[in-house]
Amino acid sequence: MVSFSSVAKRYPGGQEALRDVSFAIGEGELAFITGRSGAGKSTLLKLIPAIERPTSGSVIVKGQNISALKRAAIPYLRRNLGLVFQDQKLLYDRSVYDNAMLPLAFSGHAPKEAARRVRAALDKVGLLGRERSNPIQLSGGEQQRLAIARAVVNRPSLLIADEPTANLDVESAARILEIFVAFNQVGVTVLIATHDQGLVARYGKRVLHLEKGRVA
């Protein structure tokens, strides 16, 4: 599903975020990427939807070489991925429902089908009763769950989350992870970056530990 071979990423200014990273994630797997802040977790995840491009090495996602992907092809790659960002990136000028609807606006679903999908996604993260609310009225955990609903509304086969439990209390964090596990159980490949080792240990799943830009 995702394979990195000898990937290096150097930012302008000389900072080396990733060095010689190689790994492969199979279809239907759930893996954690751990490491301290600054270890390169976010950079690694950003290479998958081509938010960043590798300096060297190759990144293959669903058989597509991301390093060689044309600019115009990037939107279509991203539509097939579910992305959950560290800062959620919700839009506070519209309702919970409209936030979850956003990806469907440009993938061109018929309105009835789109509405059905949005409700299904909100149902899965337990926000069906909050459709009319503004995201600002939601708790931290609920906002993160809304971000997950938006990521899965297009039914991606790969779900990528960057620190989805950061700044959440233990109970909310556990609930978020349960949602990811549930998606994984129905066949979605899931990749989660986190610095919370304790949380990871509880699930007994595959762990890629990054240290100073290398897989340790």
């Binding site: 939807p49 939107p75 539509r79 992305l83 960002f85 956003l102 990806p103 606006a105 990521a151 297009n154």
Partner: peptide
Amino acid sequence: EVSKLIGATDAF
């Protein structure tokens, strides 16, 4: 920014 991140084309 969010739209670009989740797959909106430039034309959209």
